[in-house]
Design a protein around this nucleic acid. Structure first.
Ligand SMILES: NC(=O)c1ccc[n+]([C@@H]2O[C@H](COP(=O)([O-])OP(=O)(O)OC[C@H]3O[C@@H](n4cnc5c(N)ncnc54)[C@H](O)[C@@H]3O)[C@@H](O)[C@H]2O)c1
Ligand SMILES: NC(=O)c1ccc[n+]([C@@H]2O[C@H](COP(=O)([O-])OP(=O)(O)OC[C@H]3O[C@@H](n4cnc5c(N)ncnc54)[C@H](O)[C@@H]3O)[C@@H](O)[C@H]2O)c1
Lengths: 214, 214
DNA sequence: TAGAACTTGTTAACGCTTTCACAACAAGAA
DNA sequence: TTCTTGTTGTGAAAGCGTTAACAAGTTCTA
């Protein structure tokens, strides 16, 4: 139960998704090197990540998929489930709502908020959309500690501060600015412009490849 | 002109956007520590990144914003501009089209593709949407080397392979699977589910903080 | 049973990235 | 001019995450 690193948690999430896929295919066991190719990593890394969750496989049979997935779940999921709020129901916000709607039982978007009164008090992709003025009360009532920001960049800092005041401790931020918040708030930025520029750069320059001596 | 690291390229993209914002505010010079707080990093890192692009500021005045932005552009942008293709014009694809439409002159989405014949041969957010059957010819004609994948996970691998055959060398992948492609193709994954699970985890556990001795 | 074959768990080495620390330097003040 | 102040550029150190390597272990074969 010691603190896991950022990257390890990300990979655990990926592993679990892959494991669930394997369960659906009827597979029962998997080796670290198999999981590694699915996850795009190395076998050593998979084993090291398993150390972090404390799950132990068996030599010659590998990992029991169902047990391992459950083990990761015990580690990552809130036992009582966890609610998420979405702020900003624009083009991106609606796509996100559509995507996450009813997909994950233990991690669902429970409420959406938008400053536009035209969008408020409607149900979008199965999620009730409230006006921003009600955010504090609803976030408190549903015990929301996690939020997704999909408002224009100019609004993001103010919205983030408001969320933190309402008790939010983790933010997934799509606005292309860096938020300034207390250190105990975890912020993950998804900066599509930055990502696209990286891809564009490397698709011209090529990835710096390790030179292989002939 | 030596190879830059992944992370450095990402930050350069961010710096440039911040610099452009400052130019709009009429600022002409900036210190490394100012840029650092905007970018959410440290002054030392900013200076090291500047080393990478080879631009030299002046002590006591800092960096000339306009020159620096131009310097980064010379480093990152294709001189003749660069076209991007979007595959999959669903909920997410349309949001992306709306967002990038007409925003960046030197890095524009020039063509969209979708397997659904209902979506083909229409103009969506100013971008022509073609049927998948025409992808090869159009990608070749427009000299497209960069693509965004926003198709369902089950289709992503096949679409990616098709893109690579058509000459694409960099892919921004939104589908929640790891693509298996030749090593010279640069792939950046944006895995929203993974990111959200990370945020959910750390919003409960708190970020592993450095213990400060009293 | 003994041995072969292949796996896991774990420590140590490695490499990449960030941070530190400071010499060199520019600009203004005295 | 000379001193003070606050910056940049950069080698060296530190930190962090990944990879390599191998002992210990499990199963199958004979
Ligand atoms: N659409 C994309 O694909 C995309 C890509 C990259 C980044 N982004 C970023 O994501 C964010 C949203 O993008 P979008 O395309 O959905 O924009 P959008 O304009 O379509 O939607 C923004 C929504 O936020 C609401 N809003 C505005 N101010 C608000 C406030 N103070 N409180 C609550 N709600 C408020 C608006 O009413 C609107 O519904 C932006 O920051 C954008 O830069 C979007
Ligand atoms: N919507 C989101 O916010 C979101 C979030 C996370 C991940 N994703 C991922 O992004 C991808 C797209 O999501 P979406 O919500 O836009 O899905 P969607 O179903 O709305 O859109 C998918 C689009 O792809 C097209 N398509 C299907 N097969 C194709 C093929 N072989 N070639 C070309 N086009 C094809 C479909 O016609 C459709 O227009 C999915 O992989 C999804 O997992 C989306």
């Amino acid at each position: 139960m010691n603190a896991l690193s950022d990257k390890t948690v990300g990979r655990l999430s990926l592993y679990r998704r892959l494991l669930n896929g394997l369960v659906a295919d009827g597979v029962t066991h998997v080796y670290s090197h198999q999981l590694a190719v699915l996850a795009g990593g190395t076998a050593a890394q998979v084993r090291r990540d398993m150390m972090a969750v404390g799950y132990t496989g068996s030599p010659k049979r590998g990992y029991d998929i169902r047990e391992l997935a459950q083990s990761i779940g015990a580690f990552m999921d809130a036992p009582e489930g966890q609610g998420v709020a979405l702020i900003g129901v624009g083009n991106l916000g609606r796509a996100i709502l559509a995507y996450f709607a009813g997909r994950r039982p233990h991690l669902a978007i429970q409420a959406a908020f938008d400053a536009d009164p035209y969008k408020a008090n409607r149900v979008i992709h199965g999620c009730h959309c409230y006006p921003m003025t009600e955010m504090d009360t609803i976030a408190a009532k549903a015990n929301i500690r996690t939020a997704i920001i999909a408002v224009p960049a100019t609004e993001a800092q103010a919205v983030a501060a408001k969320l933190v005041r309402a008790g939010v401790r983790g933010i997934l931020n799509f606005a292309p600015i860096r938020l300034h918040l207390p250190a105990e708030v975890y912020v993950e930025d998804i900066d599509m412009t930055m990502s696209l520029e990286k891809v564009a750069y490397f698709s011209r320059k090529g990835r710096a490849e390790k030179e292989v001596n002939s």
